[in-house]
Write a protein that binds this DNA or RNA. Structure first.
Lengths: 228, 228
DNA sequence: TGAAGCTGTCACATGTTTGTCACAAAACCT
DNA sequence: AGGTTTTGTGACAAACATGTGACAGCTTCA
């Protein structure tokens, strides 16, 4: 889930600084000190975003950006250009070359990360606003709403995700481990029994709304959402 | 239907960059490298909007803007001034000279196009100020006015944009980050919590007007404007 | 120039959510 | 039935998210 970011920067100190910040923010960082190595990394790692310094030992960043844009395989990778302070022409040329954003040195880590996230967000495919329906329930992911036969149901964030998962994966048993992976994420580490508690909480909200026995216990295996 | 935009800019590289972006966005671009040629273009092409650089070889952009404003035939053409970064005086003088908006270099193509569209929308004589209505509220984007059931409501600029966005994007949850992107712009960097404060201010103005619970908190996700 | 208003940020208050536990209840096995 | 495993349930403290008032820096306007 975490995005891969390629840092193309010849100055080792700055390279490390960038990598440190990028990783601290939960992204995967890889580095290249020259245009040549950058190409290599791009092919091997398929980064989701490239931080590209304006000055490189072998080629200028602008040229590399243009090359990346010209190649069908790398055309879609967003680029953030790192330019020196006040170089008016550089910025213009940087944007012209196809960079998605630029940031002038010196910059604060916070601004850098904000721009990275903004660019990644802009390039993320926007999910259409669909509605999920199952077992008399209606769930709108975009509006973050659930309703049972017209009556709105209040859910906490985790219960919402859990129910969403069940509704889109009905009629099938999931183990606590699987549910933890799917609903909590593979990066979180909580007790398996926590699932039980949340199932119970979900049931507690669903039952008063007449939605009875929607989530069934499969002893020894896990839980199942079923329309029956 | 596509608007004609005149670019007055002496630096060829920037001129091309501007023209490229403007045309990519579906507008017709024409260019002038000096005030003299600009007048010529204005007479010939009748542009719908002028992008005017602050520095020109023969006259300053401000002077040209004032001249354009003084001429009955060109008075109505909106002007966006291109100024150097942080030149506070320029900004003031630019707006005083009659420009409708200014944009400081360096700017992102995205921001530029957003401003162009905003100015065109504001100046569109055809559209007799479309009004946005939702949840008993009526908002006139052009006039910068909002009213709740006939009663006028006073809003600051940011609250206005925020409410406008919500009214045109009802029934959907937006995270603080998304709201910052949409309402504050991708180039501004403020804390996420700032959104909370503005939401609160908006609510504070809306509630006395009887508009209660229009903006709902979705814990863990963001906020939602809903007509209920 | 001063007054008034707008913004962004902070510290603190308030209220929810969450993971975990201990124990009760239920199901399973021999 | 008795013993064992699995699941349900209520309670709870810590973590977390949001509401709220205050404030300083700015801009605007007269």
């Amino acid at each position: 889930m975490s995005a891969k970011i390629l840092i193309v920067e010849d100055e080792p100190a700055i390279q490390e600084l960038l990598a440190f910040n990028v990783e601290k923010a939960g992204f995967q960082a890889s580095c290249a000190g020259s245009a040549e190595r950058a190409w290599q990394q791009v092919r091997e790692n398929k980064p989701d975003l490239i931080l590209l310094d304006w000055m490189l030992p072998d080629t200028s960043g602008v040229v590399l950006a243009k090359q990346l844009r010209a190649d069908a395989g790398t055309k879609a990778i967003p680029i953030i250009m790192l330019t020196a302070r006040g170089e008016e022409r550089d910025k213009v040329a940087g944007l012209e070359s196809g960079a998605d954003d630029y940031i002038t040195k010196p910059f604060s880590p916070r601004e850098l990360m904000a721009r990275i996230r903004a660019v990644l967000r802009r390039h993320a495919p926007q999910a259409p606003d669909e509605t999920v329906a199952a077992g008399g329930l209606e769930l709108l992911p975009g509006a973050h709403r659930v309703s049972a036969m017209g009556r709105e149901i209040e859910l906490g964030p985790t219960e919402f995700r859990l129910l969403h998962f069940f509704m889109t994966h009905a009629e099938r048993v999931y183990s606590r481990t699987q549910l933890l992976d799917q609903v909590w994420g593979t990066q979180t580490f909580v007790e398996e029994r926590t699932v039980d508690v949340h199932i119970r909480r979900l049931r507690a909200v669903l039952e008063p709304a007449g939605m009875d026995n929607l989530i069934q216990t499969v002893r020894g295996s896990g839980y199942r959402f079923s329309v029956n």
